[in-house]
Amino acid sequence: MKAYLGIDVGSVSINIVVLNEAGEVITGLYLRTKGRPIEVIQEGLKQTAESIPPDVKIAGVGSTGSGRYLAGIMVGADVIKNEITAHAVAASMVIPDVQTVFEIGGQDSKIIIMRHGIVTDFAMNTVCAAGTGSFLDQQASRLNIPISQFGELALKSTSQVRIAGRCTVFAESDMIHKQQMGHQIPDIINGLCEALVRNYLNNVGKGKEILPPIAFQGGVAANVGIKAAFEKALGFPIIIPKYFNVMGAIGAAQIACEEVSRKGETSFKGFQITNLPYRTGSFECDGCSNVCEVVEIFEGEKVIGRWGSRCSKWDITGENK
């Protein structure tokens, strides 16, 4: 049986999925990046190789996320795609007539506007990471509430508390202020969810025509409080796909499937790469006044990838034009 591998290397999590030819998920993994993408990718691939049936043959690989070049070089990806396209493709696999995709991950948030199955507009958060997963994580641990229960608590709220959501620093001090005034924790958390949604819609979603069906994906979609706040603010139902936290990887696998059908065969190096030694190194280029920091990735002693310079002098990214 043929299958397609998708790897999404994000700031907070690394997701690996295997899709069958019909686009159904055979196995999906959600692992924390823990600042060590190479090790976690290897670990994830090891687990994936163990969990798929032995007759499954990987016929194509796609990588996405901020670490897409790293992952792509390591595994021999057939396609290295940006997160926006990957998420859009995955959303339209689940909801064919989707018109809006909200994606909130660890460090960034995006909105993707689609019409008739194609992306017509998109935006990502620009100057500020307020309202992304990392901030919610941090607040949950400050309040000593497991992040998995954070959203449910918000639903128990009985009265309105308005939290300043413009910036995480202001939001946090405002939350502490409200807590010292004697407000209930569920009300504060609900206020935070509404503030983050307001911030998202006013910043990332500014000037965009948000029409249903709306898909909400990324790690933060697990938070029912945020989902409820979106529904309240927009007046539309929000659809959370079953595999909401690995949608980027699903999109990458699907794109790989299309790419391989075009070029004939995969360049996947095989699961044995989980046993190869990888290391990275860096140096400063002294070619011009930019003094770029160039990063190299080695497989054994061989340089397989290099990037980071502003000109393309040193680049080996494995991506074709």
Binding site: K81, N82, E83, I84, T85, V119, T120, F122, M124, R310
Partner: peptide, 18 residues
């Protein structure tokens, strides 16, 4: 530059598919 490259790649995909 990383953020810009991601957006540019997505923009190019958008235009190409359109």
């Amino acid at each position: 530059k990383a953020g810009m490259t991601t957006r540019l790649e997505a923009f190019v995909d958008l235009m190409r598919r359109k």
